[in-house]
Amino acid sequence: MNTTAPVRVVIADDERLVREGIAALLALQPGIEVLGAAENGSEAVELVRRMNPDVVLMDVRMPGVDGVEAAGMLRGQAKVLMLTTFDDDDYIVRALRAGASGYLLKDLPAAELAQAVRLVHAGVDQYSAAVSGRLAAMVRAAAPSTAVVELTPRELAVLRLLAGGAANREIARSLYLSEGTVKNHVSNILSRLGVRDRTQAAIYAHAHGLL
């Protein structure tokens, strides 16, 4: 007998037929429990705070509070998996910096979407093939060398938090370091990776499986 608790899911999409369709399809998948649906980011945040789901399937473009902003507001409360028709570079980067646990396009079969939800719940970020390709292209543009740079364990820890969107103060608190030390680590990381800024460092980390 399987006693594993189902993954509790909230869906956020501004198109009623889309969110209801996703909810109906996921409800038929084993190990998934759909708790509710929201039509914008602010409703999604409120629903998460009331229902405490494991994973939020979040559209990107929604009126008022969009999906990326909502993902940032939900950091630490639920894992957010972006589900959208837009594979725009800016949206992808913003979602990653907001702490999203993946970025999928809406052309997935229901079974694959359900499996992605389960994997995100288990701590494995999920990306559509097209999105992974765009991330790889951005990394190649940011760092021409194809070799994966070796970082120290401390630098890797800083990079992982940075890629999740944490500010220097949050990184310092998490790793019990001073902000000055974190700032030095970030500068060293950018230099060693050959990237210009924190966003490109985050892209590099995601594309090379360093998270």
Rank of each mutant, 00 (worst) to 15 (best):
Met138His: 05
Leu25Asp: 03
Asn168Asp: 07
Ser187Gly: 00
Ser101Arg: 10
Pro144Val: 11
Ser191Met: 02
Ile189Lys: 13
Arg97Gly: 15
Glu155Val: 01
Leu108Met: 14
Arg97Ser: 12
Ala111Met: 04
Gly41Asn: 10
Ile189Phe: 08
Ala95Thr: 12
Leu151Arg: 06
Val80Lys: 00
Ala38Val: 07
Ala44Gln: 00
Gly180Trp: 01
Ala163Val: 04
Met82Thr: 11
Asp90Asn: 09
Met58Gln: 01
Ala136Ser: 15
Ala207Leu: 07
Ala100Tyr: 11
Val117Gln: 03
Asn168Gln: 10
Gly180Asp: 11
His121Gln: 14
Met82Val: 10
Tyr127Leu: 07
Gly64Pro: 11
Ala172His: 11
Asp88Asn: 14
Pro109Glu: 10
Leu83Met: 12
Val80Asn: 05
Ala163Pro: 02
Ala110His: 06
Asn40Phe: 10
Arg154Lys: 09
Gly64Asp: 10
Gly133Leu: 01
Asp90Phe: 01
Tyr91Ala: 15
Thr3Leu: 13
Gly67Trp: 02
Asp89Trp: 12
Leu175Tyr: 08
Ile32Arg: 08
Gly164Lys: 05
Asp88Leu: 07
Gly165Trp: 03
Ile11His: 02
Leu161His: 13
Met73Cys: 12
Ala147Trp: 01
Ala142Tyr: 00
Glu43Leu: 00
Asp13Thr: 06
Arg97Thr: 15
Pro30Tyr: 03
Ala23Glu: 10
Arg198Asp: 02
Leu25Pro: 09
Ala143Cys: 14
Met58Lys: 01
Pro30Asn: 00
Ala12Phe: 08
Gln126Ala: 06
Pro53Gly: 04
Arg97Lys: 14
Pro30Ile: 01
Asp197Arg: 06
Ile22Ser: 04
Leu175Asp: 06
Thr146Ser: 12
Ala122Glu: 13
Ala142Ile: 04
Asp89Gln: 15
Leu25Val: 13
Met82Glu: 09
Lys79His: 14
Arg94Ala: 15
Thr181Lys: 05
Met62Ala: 01
Ala129Met: 07
Ala137Ser: 08
Leu190Glu: 07
Leu156Glu: 12
Asp125Phe: 04
Leu159Trp: 03
His208Val: 15
Gly99Trp: 15
Gly209Ser: 13
Ala95Val: 08
Val149Cys: 14
Gly36Ala: 08
Ser174Arg: 13
Val18Tyr: 01
Thr85Asp: 10
Arg160Phe: 10
Gln126Met: 08
Val182Gln: 09
Glu150Met: 08
Leu96Asp: 09
Ser145Leu: 08
Leu210Arg: 10
Val9Thr: 12
Leu25Cys: 03
Asp88Trp: 02
Thr4Lys: 09
Met58Cys: 02
Val148Phe: 04
Tyr176Ile: 15
Leu81Val: 05
Thr152Ser: 13
Thr3Gly: 08
His208Thr: 15
Asn188Ile: 06
Met1Cys: 05
Gly76His: 12
Ala70Leu: 09
Ala114Trp: 03
Ala24Asn: 00
Ala163Leu: 07
Thr84Arg: 06
Ala116Trp: 13
Val34Thr: 03
Leu25Gln: 09
Leu96Trp: 10
Val56Pro: 02
Glu179Trp: 06
Leu151Met: 05
Glu33Pro: 06
Thr4Asn: 07
Met51Val: 04
Thr146Cys: 05
Ala111Leu: 05
Gly64Ile: 15
Val55Cys: 13
Val56Met: 04
Ile32Gly: 07
Ala141Gly: 09
Leu25Gly: 04
Leu57Ala: 12
Leu210Tyr: 07
Gly72Cys: 10
Glu155Phe: 07
Leu28Asp: 12
Ser101Asn: 14
Leu210Ala: 06
Ser145Gly: 09
Pro109Gly: 11
Arg49Met: 05
